[in-house]
């Protein structure tokens, strides 16, 4: 009897508890989606559901400065993603495919930014900018530099794990079939690593788009979306912030699910071709 109860617990209780934890992680997203339909015209300071409206979704750019901050965040996010993905992918190739002096030092240096609290990274960059005489010119470019810096490590880790799991026999087979090095790289290696590069880029963009602590210290008067939300939190949050939050969530979910579906379809297509 006791073992049967134990088995049942082993079978279902863990899954039930796991799903409960997952639901807990979604509580804020439900609230954010709900609040995106909240009519807050009565009182903006009262962060509470008052009455239903479509207004926030129809006029997302109503709050002054919000869409400008969104544009700033997207530009910085795209530029930082592009730079960090290129720099990080090159580094990942070097670390997986080459043995060179200083390799283990480089591994450590790449690990450190992930193990440093953001407040320390942000304040040290600020100290550098001020010491170098750029204290008065903090803004778009200093934020971009910071974002590229903390994204590189995450790109390297993501691309490296994809590259390390690659079957090198595929490349050997290509060269056996008289492909030259460039052909082997562009037709075999790169397409196989590409999903890793893509997920690294997605990760980099979301890290950059969401960063607050480092940005806040190095942005001068430039306002990114998280900084807009932070500023609004002191005065009363416009409900449109929740519209943007919900849109971002749906967009990311769409990209991830779309990628997965595409992957499966491609795998199926390949299987039926044989």
């Amino acid at each position: 009897m006791i073992t049967r109860v134990g088995n049942w617990i082993g079978k279902h209780l863990m899954l039930t508890l796991g799903i409960l934890v997952l639901l807990y992680m979604y509580i804020p997203n439900f609230i954010v989606a709900l609040m995106s339909f909240n009519d807050s015209s009565e009182s903006r300071n009262l962060y509470q559901f008052q009455s239903f409206t479509w207004d926030n979704w129809l006029n997302p750019c109503d709050p002054q400065g919000m869409c400008e901050s969104l544009r700033v965040s997207i530009s910085i996010g795209l530029l930082a993603t592009l730079a960090a993905t290129i720099i990080g992918t090159l580094a990942a190739f070097a670390l997986v495919r080459h043995r060179f002096e200083g390799r283990s030092t480089m591994n450590l240096v790449l690990f450190l930014p992930m193990a440093t609290p953001e407040i320390v990274m942000g304040s040290s960059l600020l100290a550098l900018f001020v010491a170098a005489g750029f204290g008065g010119q903090l803004g778009f470019w200093t934020v971009l530099i910071a974002h590229i810096m903390f994204c590189i490590s995450f790109v390297v880790v993501t691309v490296r794990s994809r590259l390390a799991g690659l079957d090198s026999n595929l490349e050997k087979a290509a060269s056996d079939l008289y492909a030259n090095e460039w052909q082997t790289f562009w037709r075999i290696t790169f397409p196989l690593v590409f999903p890793g590069i893509l997920s690294a880029a997605l990760l980099a963009f979301s890290l950059s788009f969401d960063d607050f602590i480092i940005t806040n210290l190095n942005s001068g008067t430039t306002v990114t979306f998280p900084m807009f939300v932070w500023g609004a939190a002191q005065r009363g949050v416009p409900m449109q912030v929740n519209v943007i939050g919900t849109l971002m969530f749906l967009l990311a979910l769409g990209i991830v699910i779309g990628g997965e579906v595409l992957n499966r379809r491609r795998a199926k297509g390949k299987a039926s071709a044989f």
Binding site: G18, L22, M25, Y26, I27, P28, N29, I31, V32, M35, Y47, Q48, S206, F209, D210, F212, F225, P226, V229, W230, A233, V237, V241, N242, I244, G245, T246, M248, F249, L251, A252, L253, V256, I257, E260
Partner: peptide, 29 residues
């Protein structure tokens, strides 16, 4: 895979916006 994606997905809604929503959940009234 689905559950793993579901673990990561909520985090695409801005960190600050989600933290603010806890303010509402834990509010006095």
């Amino acid at each position: 895979t689905v559950m793993l994606v579901l673990v990561i997905a909520p985090f695409f809604t801005s960190f600050l916006v989600r933290t603010l929503s806890w303010k509402l959940i834990l509010a006095d009234n």
